[in-house]
Nucleic acid binder design. Structure first.
Lengths: 155, 155
DNA sequence: CTTGAATGGTTCATAAACTGAAGTATATGA
DNA sequence: TCATATACTTCAGTTTATGAACCATTCAAG
């Protein structure tokens, strides 16, 4: 019965098409994340990927459009499992820097490479299309982080 | 202190850039969804948007990369609130067709228009870039639905 | 027909994830 | 030095998602 699943979407606006594509990809990636590193749950994977360098928890919260308490919980898990350590930020001793351990670095490298692979398989895009998609996605992310942090749009 | 939030991502692969962009956009859209129709929660919004025509619950589950029990719960909420009705599919009386009511149609129209607006504001893309992004996103979604339904990759 | 297996949804108990409000410690400015 | 703001933590409560067992209908054989 699932013959015409990707059905007549022609009349939908580019914005809705974009949103549907983004949601499909997000859901697919989340689903696929289950199958690589059983040790880690989703938010831990997300945080690990973002820790390409030591970062303050507040920065991560902004980066992940999340709130401090969520970041605390996720960091707790990663710290307890030995993937990172908390170090006081010398520039502001109220803040913590999350620093990956050796184990954390290795897990992150693995994750990043797996995720790249995943994107490739899930999206089905070739190199040129991927580059173009990445360019636009990067631009979108910049715009979101720029506009999303200072104000709040509604709250 | 949040001066260099969108920091040196130059060395990240296009795949990771894409993923980060997709996640940022997804999270931003989800956050923004909170602010339009307080009556509806997120999964209900998603389902409503997908119901551009009557659909079977199984089709929706495939479409949303979800499982039947989740679809049941979401449909229950929408039905109880008067946005849709269940009708037996005449072609297979085991299956239900989810059909939007007048109220559901109106809510959907509003949502679709709001979501389009949201995408516009969140992404910051111009019309040409949006069209290109939509083209790639649509292609990605097609690929995911095509490959995602039959097999399962790992399970 | 009648039977057995497959399919479309539902129920329910549980787990995973997120959040806001109140609290602690440090910083900053008057 | 004191008041206020910031960075993070704690915790209790909500929301969301899920798998396993279940019911009803269909389909394919005999």
């Amino acid at each position: 019965m699932p013959e015409n699943i990707s059905d007549r979407l022609g009349r939908l606006s580019p914005e809705i098409l974009s949103i549907m594509g983004v949601y499909a990809l997000y859901w697919k990636l989340e689903e696929a994340f289950d199958c690589i590193e059983t040790e880690l749950n989703h938010p831990e994977c997300h945080m690990l990927i973002k820790l390409d360098q030591p970062k303050r928890m507040g920065v991560l919260a902004a980066d992940m459009l999340s709130v401090p308490s969520t970041i605390t919980a996720t960091a707790d898990g990663l710290e307890k499992a030995g993937y990172l350590t908390r170090e006081r930020d010398p520039e502001d001793r109220r803040a913590w820097l999350l620093v990956l351990t050796k184990q954390g670095e290795e897990a992150r490298d693995m994750l990043v490479s797996e995720a790249g692979d995943l994107f490739h398989r899930a999206s089905g895009l070739d190199a040129k299309e991927t580059a173009e998609f990445a360019r636009l996605a990067h631009k979108i992310r910049d715009n979101i982080l720029k506009s999303g942090i200072p104000e709040g749009l509604t709250k």
